[in-house]
Amino acid sequence: MAIFVRSASLIKYSDIARAVGIDPICKVREAGLDPVCLSAPDLRIPEAGLASVFQESVRSTELRSLGVRIGEAWRLSDFGAVSLYLQHQPTLRHVLAEVERYRHMLSDSVSIRVADFGEVSLVHVVLVTGRPDPGRDIVELTVGAVFNLIRGILGAQWKARGVYFAHAAPESMRFHRPFLGPNVEFDSEFDAIALTREELDRPNPLGDAALARYAKELLDLRLPSRPASITDEVRRAIHILLPQGQGAIERVGQRLGFAPRTLQRQLEQAGQSFSALVNEVRGELAMRYLGNRHHTVSDIANLVGFSEVSAFSRWFSGEFGKPPTRWRSDYFADVARDDVNEAH
């Protein structure tokens, strides 16, 4: 599936790159993108192209932690046409729900899910990229942008209960802790931001129902909804629900507002099947988790919907031609080899 994102992050990337002597125009062209995206924030560009720009740029040691640095520079206004509408929502919970509702204007790649656990809530940030590894910088940029969105609503004094990343910790926390606070954890099971439930439901002092309605009217007039295909919506829902043990068609249908038979029929009309989509997403997630040393193969089997490791190993071998343990060892050998080549 084609996944597109707004070009706004490349404008901030451009400022950081130039500050360390990197030509952003050159990097953008190398990724097959039009340099105009360095000055126009609302262009839709391929997510893979953005990832390529970041990947090639961070080969320079001066641009380590590029993603979190862009996230730190993100402001509420950087959400573009939806910014005014978000600013006047009654609570942060409403803000996050509207980000999800209008994600077709922001990013095909990002989904936000809020989960309450007593007095604490987790804002999960889920990336659907079509690549086994979204990349550290893409993840940290997205989490950082959501973090600053929360701060924009709750105020500059707000501090997160915790910020969690599924990838491994960087060599230096020089940019992470001053921005995200002291409670940053890596090798987590998810990418998320923790805050109190009271903060999530606290009345927004900037909220104005009349202005929100006005902003929505302008928003819908200027940028009419471009609904995603049923295939893309189901694929996104599976990405979110499968690691929670809720990847059955009944739960996916419930999330999307369809009865299971109706959902299956719509997929068939689109030339797809639910089982094929589950298998596709399962493969993407399995490779993503295997690239994280924190997860055991047993953990991964459970996260992608297998109750037995042996069943997971048979399925993985059939899909990728080697058992998961072999795939993991080959993957980290390739990573080590790339690191040696970069060092020279």
Rank of each mutant, 00 (worst) to 15 (best):
L211K: 15
R131L: 14
V146E: 01
L219M: 11
E342C: 04
G305A: 07
F312Q: 08
Q272G: 01
L43K: 10
V125E: 09
T61V: 13
A156S: 14
V5H: 07
E280H: 11
F54C: 09
A215Q: 03
A48F: 05
G305T: 09
D299E: 11
Y331V: 00
H88N: 12
E268H: 10
V58F: 00
Q246W: 02
F165K: 01
Q87Y: 07
K27Q: 15
T91N: 05
H239Y: 14
D220P: 03
V278M: 02
S57H: 02
G181M: 03
H104T: 05
W74H: 02
A194C: 12
Q55E: 11
G257V: 00
P203C: 00
W74V: 02
V143K: 06
I150P: 00
I3Y: 15
I193H: 05
G291V: 05
S107M: 06
V184W: 14
V234P: 04
D187P: 13
H104S: 08
A166D: 12
L38V: 03
V309S: 09
Q244A: 12
D137Y: 00
E284H: 08
L154N: 04
S109V: 02
R6M: 10
V82P: 02
A17M: 13
V234G: 00
V128C: 14
G321W: 02
L86G: 09
L263C: 09
V5Y: 12
I3P: 10
A160W: 03
E189Q: 12
G318Y: 07
E185Y: 07
G257P: 11
R265V: 05
V128D: 15
A81R: 10
K12P: 12
P132Q: 00
V143M: 12
Y85A: 09
E217D: 12
C26A: 14
H239V: 13
G207T: 09
Y102A: 03
T296L: 02
G135N: 07
F186N: 08
R213I: 05
D108W: 00
F258R: 14
K159V: 15
P227A: 05
E72D: 13
A286W: 04
W158F: 11
A259F: 11
R255L: 10
I300T: 12
R326Q: 12
L141M: 13
Q269S: 06
S317C: 03
A212C: 09
V309L: 10
S39M: 10
Y13L: 13
Y102K: 07
F175V: 01
E284A: 04
L256N: 06
A81T: 09
R161M: 03
R131I: 11
S121C: 15
Q246R: 12
L122D: 11
P132M: 00
R293K: 10
E268G: 15
H344G: 14
A192H: 08
G152M: 04
V53Q: 03
Q264K: 11
G67S: 04
M173H: 09
P132F: 00
I112K: 03
V5M: 13
S14P: 10
G162C: 04
L106W: 01
C26I: 07
R6Q: 09
S52H: 11
H294V: 02
D23P: 15
A336G: 00
L154F: 06
G80D: 04
S107Y: 08
A73T: 05
E171F: 07
G253L: 06
R255D: 02
G283Q: 01
H124S: 13
I150S: 00
H124G: 13
A209P: 00
